[in-house]
Write a protein that binds this DNA or RNA. Sequence first.
RNA 1: UGGGUCGUCGCCAAGCGGUAAGGCACGGGGUUUUGAUCCCCGCAUACCAAGGUUCGAAUCCUUGCGACCCAGCCA
Length: 554
Amino acid sequence: MSANENPVVPTNFIHHIIDSDLKANKNNGKVATRFPPEPNGYLHIGHAKSICLNFGLAAKYQGRCHLRFDDTNPEKESDEYVQAIMRDVEWLGFKWHELHHASDYFGQLYDYAVQLIKDGKAYVDSSTPEQIRANRGTLTEPGKPSPDRSRSIAENLDLFQRMRAGEFADGQYVLRAKIDMASPNINMRDPTIYRIRRVHHQRTGDAWCIYPMYDYTHCLSDAIEGITHSICTLEFEDHRPLYDWVLHELDTPCHPQQIEFARLQLEYTIVSKRKLNQLVTAKHVGGWDDPRMPTIAGMRRAGVPAAAIRDFCERIGVTKKDAWIEAGVLENCIREDLNQNALRAMAVLQPLRVVIESYPEAQTEWLEVSNHPQRPELGKRKLPFTRVVLIEQDDFAENPPPKYKRLVPGGEIRLRGAYVIKCHAAVKDADGRIIELRCSHDPNTLGKNPEGRKVKGVIHWVSESNSLPAEIRLYDRLFRLPYPDNEKNFLAALNLDSLTILEHGRVEASLAGVAPESCRQFERTGYFCVDKDSTDTKMVFNRTVTLREDWVKE
RNA sequence: UGGGUCGUCGCCAAGCGGUAAGGCACGGGGUUUUGAUCCCCGCAUACCAAGGUUCGAAUCCUUGCGACCCAGCCA
């Protein structure tokens, strides 16, 4: 595939920063990044952008990229999420050079906190959350110091040790950094860095009853791991002074540079773990891996190739601009990959019986068709042609709209890879519904055009007797509005027709036994992949994406 | 009315003082036993606005305007 041989890897402002760091021999010419998810939900397309960025940087600069779980809030975290995250990162195609957990550093983090206290840079506060909030001030007014701010170092040390020892109730005390209650940056108004919480931690169990906060933990974890460039999203820009403050006050192995970029915003989707969790919990979807979910697991189940996600992340770029990506960009990446790589197959989603009266009843011809019209190296397969075939209900119209290119009464159509047939009659049931077509075939049209006339269209088909029953799940976008988050309640933007199940599909017999996650292009209808719900008696396919349809719809 | 950041084509996005890359979308044409793919062609005298500096500005300066983020013992 020469198309992907010379990918033009776009550059972005982070490359510029690193390039100049390298030129100045900062960090001894090394580059180390990390992807730091909190294990409180499944990874989504927004995380994919961050993963591609961080692992991509390490690859580009021959550096390292760590996977680090930011597991400092045991109330929301679980091992299920840890496992899912590792699975998703690997599936996306990345290998971490080191695996870490912020919880691995709890001991060191505690020692650093003691040092901060000894230096007079942190104090134990007995204020309630309400008092802390009230004293924090507002965006335009400075905060007021807590009465505990002047507590002695000795007393702070004693109290902090006893916090750890479990002598106090949850919430009774917190440890705060002593910075500046009048700072125009609210994050610098003595942020809480430790809280008491008697919660079982998925990794450290009940070893701790105090847990460090993100701002305190993240920078130190980066420094401990020797991260050189700590990349995060824009909402942490205001936290950078705090990141730098902690590392400046403490004697750490290094001082990583925090760089912020704009998080992904994709039309018709939502990338908030809280809201995605809500969709799962309230059963608006089948689970975190529901094919409609923008999660990595969901897209994987839908049949989206990892390479398409990587391509997408590359195309959208990395900037600090608040941007919205049109849904078509992702779809294009998916189609581009699948068009190149998916084998073709014949499948009829909503069958209509076609009896070819001119074709011998007992006869079966094995017709050779290409697995991929543009890639002969992918071989050919044989399809059984029989007297009774099934075509798509949509491919026949008694009263065709203008420019209809399919079968009509008295008209001819090419059955893809087979004969040209002509429709003589439509058989209807008592309700007037068409249940069968009576046709004849032109035996002289196999592999060649009929003489003296042009056939306007080609449709797909499957042998009635020699095909497999299949359930086809047609997925559409989960939200009917491009910006679900703009709604007071995002659930109101849900597309109630996001899933259509077709129970009576038929697919060509060669698909028997094809493994889950295998993708095929069902000619003329779209890309589909085998779902894990498939059984020996009934295959199940998920529609990944439709084919482009360039014509005006009726 | 505090602080932080951003503003180049419908949507992304290069550009970093020398005269507007690319992708998606869109429009037109061609090939085609998938109305798919593929292939051509078109698509910003213009870079939020207004001033200024300069031989020359999207790029530098000034002043406006607009958008986003921040007041968790969440991350």
